[in-house]
Design a protein around this nucleic acid. Structure first.
Lengths: 333, 333
DNA sequence: TAGATATATAATTAATTCTTATCTAAAGTC
DNA sequence: GACTTTAGATAAGAATTAATTATATATCTA
């Protein structure tokens, strides 16, 4: 299927001859011997079955076919050089795309800040954020549709050995109430008070819901007896609902900074209970990470990590699928 | 200066892998062994210092750099194929340009008919006609600016061994008069009558003028005593001037066909004198002739040639600068 | 016609790029 | 979970390709 009857080198030689005016000078400009040029052009003429130069005179003259090939050849060479530049830009973070995945909470409150920082540093890299369920996000990383993701739940078991999962930060979940709620007066409420509240939650399949159930259960709270009044599918919607007095909710503290400051939501602590979950970074361990992903991991993630997890993170940024190592080996030869 | 760190073959391999989904299948589709593919891609990755595929899974996955290179590679390959097609079209007379030179008379009356025929046969070849003096036309052929030319005069001596000059046809020059001229009544006039006419001619440097002088001198006519009333620089202008009664003129019979038929000009013969010149085809013997020039020589020229010159013309069409001969030699091996 | 310059040719050597054979690792099978 | 299948990597040798040096030929210049 469609052999190409010339090589890039031959086109470069053709161009050099046209520019320099003779085989000899072209040979000098390309730092090869003159017969090398002669042979390459002869081969080219043989392969194309058409003469490209009229020799003999003091300078080699292009035939019509030669001019035609030269014109196309210059276009081709230019395109090749453009290709090189695009690849270099990609390596220098002057281009390319970084795709980051996240689940609801992190995608809404944490990642936009990270991406903002990254964008400031590397304005020519276009960044995409994909907010989906933990499950879908994990698969996206596994399939390579997403470079890395930050999630707050468990990675599906079938992906646990494909993905590298690095505990990254703690996310504290707060119980929020409307300011005018009777219990909102208190700093801390008892576990029993929990049974007297109406809850607004994400749907029962969501990771954050499962995490909360898990932790409360561990604190001897029967989650089945907590009254769920409403299930919404966005954290912003839940906050608004709570603010409007429709009930209470568990949300990440990162999601309510502004509202607490403005006094439109109240946070109450629960006696002897701390609801924390671990956020994790996930990457595909079988996949080479782009320069952009590398930079994001090395330069942005640490700024938001809990100190205790920093060493792990550092290890990650050194473990890109073996390639650069090999490069060094080869260069030594 | 600007080495290109990949080859067309490598791009074709990259494309094949992307299309077939695996190194193995790409190898099969390109009819080479699998290691050949592996090695080429490894070299490519080394040269670009960036991995192009994530291996290991059931199918090879492109990295971001791989996709980028693939996208450019496809453009490059397409352009190469376009180049091939353009070259083929040139060979098949489905494209390209033929540039024909001529001097005044042939350029005005003979070549337009030839070019018309050629264009009917090869509508995709664009034909240019350049009408200049014999001298300038000869140089244009020598320099390769013109593929071939038909001239009616002598080729400058310094070009006689660069150019191939093939006598091609006879051009008869006629003496024309306005219909109402006293001598226009006669079929034939005497040499002496010539001295009683006023002549309208091209400028004294023109070839046709020199040819006429030469022939008349040979017939014992003293050209210095012929009265030149007007020098014009176009044959059409001369015809109009004669028609208007401003004098007599010598012009090619091919230039007055229409006017004689319409009776607006009269031709008179001269006792015992025939003014004929030989038209010649000139080509550059050191130069490879394009397929289009070849076709023009082989298929168009014979239709207008004097029979006596046909053998020479045939020889010419077999003598393109040795190239196809070589091809055959090589194919035998 | 001699000298300089440009391209072609030939023989040799160097480099590259295949191929075959073998090996490793992952994925699907029973 | 051992077994087969499949994809890709690796190594060694063969084949091809492309370079080099040396030399020949032809053209332009003086």
């Amino acid at each position: 299927m469609s052999e190409i009857p010339f090589s890039l080198d031959q086109l470069r030689i053709l161009k050099a001859i046209a520019e320099e005016g003779s085989f000899k000078k072209a040979a000098d400009s390309l730092f090869v011997s003159q017969p090398a040029i002669s042979l390459q052009i002869q081969n080219l003429e043989k392969q194309l079955s058409v003469p490209l130069f009229d020799r003999g005179g003091r300078k080699a003259q292009l035939t019509e076919a030669g001019s035609l090939l030269l014109a196309y050849g210059e276009k081709i060479i230019t395109l090749c050089q453009e290709t090189c530049r695009a690849l270099e830009d990609l390596q220098n973070l002057q281009g390319g795309t970084l795709i980051v995945g996240a689940s609801q909470t992190t995608g809404t409150y944490l990642l936009p800040r990270m991406i903002g920082l990254f964008h400031q540093k590397y304005p020519y890299v276009s960044v995409q954020l994909q907010v989906h369920s933990t499950r879908r996000t994990s698969w996206a990383v596994a399939n390579g549709q997403v470079d890395l993701a930050i999630i707050g739940g468990e990675v599906p078991s079938e992906l646990q050995d494909v993905l590298q999962i690095i505990p990254y930060a703690e996310d504290e979940l707060a119980l929020i109430l409307p300011p005018n709620h009777p219990l909102a007066e208190k700093e801390t409420i008892s576990k029993e008070d929990l049974y007297n509240l109406q809850y607004i939650t994400l749907d029962s399949q969501s990771t954050i819901r499962k995490v909360i159930d898990q932790i409360l259960t561990r604190c001897q709270i029967n989650t089945n007896e907590l009254k769920v009044g409403m299930e919404l599918n966005s954290i912003e919607a839940i906050k608004n609902a709570v603010q409007s007095g429709l009930g209470a909710a568990f949300v990440s503290v990162t999601a309510i900074e502004k509202e607490l400051k403005m006094g439109i939501l109240r946070r109450v602590h629960i006696q002897d209970v701390e609801i924390k979950r671990i956020l994790s970074v996930i990457v595909n361990s079988n996949r080479y990470r782009s320069k952009a992903a590398e930079a994001f991991i090395k330069e942005i993630l640490p700024q938001f990590a809990s100190e205790q997890f920093l060493p792990e993170l550092e290890k990650l940024s050194k473990n890109n699928k073996q390639f650069l190592d090999k490069q060094v080996e080869i260069k030594d030869n």
